[in-house]
């Protein structure tokens, strides 16, 4: 547990030093939100469409920035030392936690920007935060897993995107339903059913992927 927290601390320390992740993720999301809102400003768009756009934004953000967290370690040559210093499953957990926190904050801000620009009907920001956190955690768990696979194969991050998308299908289905429910402010039984579904997949990812990563990186 100490190793995990030390790795997480290292991630935030590195981030504070160069601020690359924060700046790029915020700039990227705000730019996308602005472009989408500007093009939709005079159209009477449905909440379903806004939910789809928000999900698309999450996907873009996740697929472009999350693998970068891993590939940057490889490019700098620090991944080798990470492997030597800490068990790979701890590195996986720390990277997942770090990217979840970073993306949740960034997405909360962009959802608020959506709310301001497009006059959405979001009332309950606690549920919005919870849903965005769960979506980010799920996406991070899967994308960091596939990024570690592609690093092991010495492949580019595009390979990790190809491998991630099919594994993200249930999360995308649940996320779309949850985001639509949030945008129309309807928290009925279907919302709770979807929330339970995404929580189930989160638990599964967090329990299963570290074991699989340890198996992949095991030295015989």
């Amino acid at each position: 547990m100490n190793v995990l927290f030390a790795l997480l601390y290292k991630e935030f320390l590195c981030e504070l030093k160069n601020k690359q992740g924060i700046i790029s993720s915020f700039l990227f999301t705000f730019f996308l939100v602005f472009i989408i809102s500007y093009s939709m400003a005079h159209l009477n768009i449905s909440n379903n469409l806004v939910a789809s756009l928000l999900l698309l934004l999450i996907l873009f953000l996740s697929l472009t920035l999350m693998p970068r967290i891993i590939t940057i370690e490889k490019e700098r040559g620090t991944f080798f030392f990470l492997q030597k210093l800490a068990p790979i499953e701890n590195t996986y957990m720390a990277k997942t936690a770090y990217s979840t926190i970073l993306n949740t904050i960034s997405l909360l801000c962009s959802t608020f920007a959506f709310h301001v620009f497009l006059n959405s009907n979001i009332q309950n920001w606690m549920y919005t935060g919870l849903v965005l956190f769960l979506i980010c955690l799920n996406f991070s768990a899967v994308i960091i897993f596939t990024s570690l696979i592609s690093i092991n194969l010495n492949s580019s991050w595009i390979y990790s995107c190809v491998l991630s998308l099919p594994l993200l299908i249930p999360q995308i289905i649940y996320s779309l339903q949850l985001l639509t429910a949030i945008l129309i402010d309807r928290y009925d039984s279907v919302f709770w059913q979807n929330l339970l579904g995404i929580i189930g997949f989160t638990i599964l990812s967090i329990l299963l992927f570290p074991i699989l990563i340890r198996t992949i990186y095991r030295v015989d």
Binding site: F145, I149, N152, L153, L163, P166, L167, I169, P170, F201, L204, L208, F209, L212, I213, T215, I216, R218, D220
Partner: peptide, 17 residues
């Protein structure tokens, strides 16, 4: 060397999906 391990891990990950 890691071919089988990667493939097996990915296939296990696809099973619940």
């Amino acid at each position: 060397n890691s071919r089988g391990r990667i493939l097996a891990s990915y296939n296990i990950a696809t099973l619940p999906i």
